[in-house]
Design a protein around this nucleic acid. Structure first.
Lengths: 339, 339
DNA sequence: TTGTACGCGTTATCAA
DNA sequence: TTGATAACGCGTACAA
């Protein structure tokens, strides 16, 4: 099955009549080789179909030009988008991307991180700041640059390229209050393992407090990421007493689940009840009513994360902390509450 | 920045008072080491925090336990789903996944393939069967197992784990004919670089022919993957003469674009015109009307593709050709045509 | 069951 | 500008 033996540096060297060192230079720092020699070598390389052996190169150079990303799931459009941008930027810099997903499980994430390091990743992209001390120590010990996305955090060994989840949620909540809403409910992800979900609740509470509303009166439902589970949770919230005039959701997918259930329950959005999302994925624009939500610059985040990581492995920069802006996108699902 | 020097096999050997060969065995074939020795070595390993150097291991063992996937885009839910399943299965087998996307561009795909091979991928997952002879030769020469997904193909050096795009589209077209539709239009992806898009058109034509309808009367719009572009194309099709009673779309995302435009044009689906999708992603269930579409077992495909690839690199199996079933999912967007 | 010793294909240092 | 050569860290015959 395996084709013939592949040519090595030495084969090329022999063919071109130079030393292996010269061939290596032609590949890695061509400008340090005389033009004549270089052309001869490059010719041999293409004629023989030579391509450097990855393992040997990694062993000798002590780097792989490979970066790892551990995300909660690839099937959420927000991570897919960010990841795509991350990979595009890596590609532009001749680096490749190793991916795995943790299903929002910290234990799995920890294993994945170790696997990626074992696989020789030069740097890592992780989501959110909630993880164990052990993994922190492990990463520190290995000296591998890490950038954390989707959130911002305190100074430390990690880079951050993210946004303020609490501020985004608070801004949207303020807008709802301004429209006259007083009875809020929140439908989001599992706060224990998901700091973004947690921060968004905190943001809403903060806005309530600012307007002298009771933050503890905020009804909260936490469910895993899924349209149907969100629908069920919406049903429970609506039956609460007093019935909320608005259900703010932790993300667009859950908001769509809420919308779907509202329709089934014969509730008109936003006439009977308002619903908001978070993320601003395409989905938000195709449902009826279109979602009012918080726009998150996923692509910028992914691209910027790659830039930061690349700069760190190149040693041209230390850990960064970059905060990207979010913005409220007003569509149709949020309106004045019924009288 | 880099932590202290990391321990090597030799450090462990010295610490445990054995040879490096024994340590290596403890890591790779523990059952070949006496229990006492093994425990001592494993203890040293964890105490020192040893983890094999990836480059060295790849160089010596001639494999990386890394697989590459080149997909058109990560932001299409269908690929995200398949990829997720693919990675999950790899993970269960202690292998990692290298990902990149080609934006449906064959030239980019070719570059990505070469990059992945250069990065030491033990096997590759590719989408669709349309690619250049050069890359075929290149892959053959390297002797790297390749599985092609999302389609089925003729016997050859590659494995296939996919489904029959033409048959799926034909089945849905037959159902539409059965409901009374006679004036068909097709709205799909770019056939030149996308064989799945092409096959789906072929399937519809076949169904028309079977029922003595003129396959050449099928109006066709080809647009890149995007809700808005699909909407525009839908507008053009609807203005065609005679106006189609049904617009079959190459995928669910384009169908949603069509739905959105229909609404804007004041057309009621399916009362004034029917619309169908292909893929059966979540999106199909949340729009109004819910999409009648062709279900594709994306997860099964991803998982199975990993299984096939793993079997091939282990030498326990040669190239496979696996055809997964598709199924029509009837929801609301397809109904009898208006009289 | 364990150890010896060589080879894997590069990179990088140093000298020419 | 080029060449010789020593690492790089591990796997694996082969021998004991």
């Amino acid at each position: 099955m395996k084709g013939e033996e592949l040519p090595t540096l030495e084969d090329v060297a022999r063919d071109a009549g130079v030393s292996t060192a010269t061939v290596s230079r032609c590949v890695n720092e061509p400008w340090r080789v005389a033009e004549g020699t270089r052309n001869r070598v490059l010719d041999s390389i293409s004629r023989l179909g030579y391509s450097p052996n990855f393992g040997a190169r990694a062993l000798a150079a002590r780097r792989t030009d490979t970066f790892g990303a551990v995300i909660p799931t690839m099937t959420n459009a927000i991570f897919a988008r960010g990841l795509q941008a991350f990979q595009d930027e890596l590609g532009r810099n001749d680096a490749t991307l190793l991916v795995s997903s943790s299903s929002y499980d910290p234990a799995i994430e920890e294993r994945q991180v170790r696997t990626m390091i074992a696989r020789g990743a030069d740097g890592l992209l992780l989501i959110g700041k909630r993880r164990s001390k052990e993994i922190d120590r492990f990463l520190e010990r290995r000296g591998v640059p890490v950038v954390i996305a989707w959130t911002v955090g305190k100074a430390g060994p990690y880079s951050f390229v993210g946004f303020d989840n609490a501020a985004g949620a608070a801004a949207l909540a303020r807008r709802a209050i301004e429209l006259g809403h007083r009875r809020f409910a929140f439908l989001g992800g599992l706060r224990r393992t998901n700091d973004r979900a947690n921060d968004r609740v905190l943001g809403v509470r903060r806005a309530l407090r600012e307007h002298d509303l009771d933050p503890d009166a905020l009804a909260i439902e936490e469910v895993p990421y899924s349209i149907d589970r969100a629908g069920e949770a919406f049903g429970r919230l609506v039956q609460g007493c007093p019935r909320p005039s608005i259900v703010m959701c932790g993300n667009d997918v859950q908001a769509v689940g809420a919308l779907k259930m509202a329709r089934r329950m014969g509730l008109s959005v936003p006439r009977d009840i308002s619903v908001t999302g978070f993320d601003d994925i395409e989905l938000a624009t195709v449902v009826e009513p279109a979602l009012t939500t918080v726009h998150v610059p996923h692509r910028d985040m992914g691209r910027k994360a790659a830039e930061v990581l690349l700069a760190q492995v190149r040693g041209t920069d230390g850990p960064q902390r970059i905060r990207l802006p979010t913005a409220i996108v007003e569509r149709e699902s949020l309106a004045r509450p019924p009288d």
